[in-house]
Design a protein around this nucleic acid. Structure first.
Lengths: 205, 205
DNA sequence: ATCTCTCTCTACCAATTGGTAGACGATTCG
DNA sequence: CGAATCGTCTACCAATTGGTAGAGAGAGAT
């Protein structure tokens, strides 16, 4: 709390680097599996320096969750703004926008996935930040359905299904690889294309 | 190894109870977050008894993975056998069959989801057991497509998409709840129905 | 009755965990 | 220049982790 204020005024790199390392490590291997010491080692600093910037491990997790949510909001906002007007194209653009950083930084959605394993307070806080994103999707789908540009249905369920599918794909590469799928950019693109075809077939007015 | 043999001959309850408790705890909270001591406490036994039946924590995880894979195979086999001949109905029956135990025992798919966090050897071993299930789905989809009873497409991608979606739904209830979805039987049923409608729209010949 | 084997227990252990206390240089500010 | 503050460090700590050694209760077999 005090530390956060200090950071904003004076330093910038150490705290940011801790957050970056923690996001990657937490997201890929899980929060409980990664020790403060390992994060510190990745940053090139001592564990106590991490505890200087974040009062506790839980505070660090909170900081990382903030970062994840903020990054997702930025990515999605940009995609929506740049997307064409056609609803199917627009949905596709958002899916594509979420996928791209998910490949570059596996921890991004990996951490979202771990929400159910965090403490209740942390899970609630993350849900609070993800929910508006899904709510926006629900509102958008509802509008387009009302306008007759998408096939009628329950927008809430469709948004939930899409969310579950995206996080499922982004965080389950090992098993998918076992059936001959590759986690590289091409493999992800083909899966995304398949998802788009599904959405088109199911949502086309 | 020796212990497994002993169990088969003489005892049955303690080892089974350890596996049951470990499946639930590992699946819900994660393997690294659950200590042998906690599992032992749930079973009503000392930690060293757990280490008597399983040489190490890793061996216990292996045992649980075996159990998960075996249960999934049984459930899916039964569903396939009892399902009607129509491919869409049959797909629906399998989805339904996987969902049912996933609600009753959240740990079942929760542990599958954690495959990426396990050691390489364990991840490979689990993938080996899940892959045949997906392979069967791929073969089935391919056959029905060739027979013209399902819309043509890449069965491998469709199976991967379905797998990712199911595990995503079954293991992400917290965030979904934040958008007004309930994780009870009714909520899950509605989501499953939506998934079925999607599959029908996308796969209908 | 004793011997053997199965199973669970008590008693430890080294390593690692998140976290505290406080010393030490470097900067900034009066 | 002196003082305060900031950022990182060394030095600890209690608790918990997975794991080992071995005692001892109970049942069956000889």
């Amino acid at each position: 709390m005090m530390a956060q204020w200090r950071y904003a005024v004076t330093d910038r790199t150490t705290r940011e680097r801790i957050l970056d390392a923690a996001l990657d490590l937490f997201g890929v291997r899980g929060v409980v599996a990664v020790s403060l010491d390992e994060i510190a080692r990745h940053v090139g600093v001592r564990k106590q320096t991490v505890l200087y910037w974040f009062d506790s491990k839980e505070a660090l997790v909170d900081g990382v969750l903030d970062k994840v949510a903020a990054e997702l909001v930025i990515v999605i906002d940009a995609a929506v703004r740049a997307a064409p007007d056609d609803p199917l194209d627009r949905i596709d653009a958002v899916v594509r926008a979420v996928f791209r950083p998910a490949v570059r930084r596996p921890g991004l959605l990996g951490l979202v996935r771990e929400v159910s394993r965090l403490s209740q307070g942390q899970a609630d806080r993350l849900a609070e930040r993800i929910a508006p994103l899904i709510d926006r999707a629900v509102a958008y789908l509802g509008d387009e359905m009302a306008a007759g540009r998408l096939r009628a249905g329950d927008p809430r369920l469709i948004a939930a299904l899409g969310y579950a599918t995206i996080t499922g794909i982004a965080t389950e590469p090992e098993v998918l690889r076992a059936v001959g799928w590759t986690a590289d950019a091409a493999g992800l693109r083909s899966l995304r294309d398949e998802l788009r075809a599904f959405l088109r077939a199911a949502l086309q007015a």
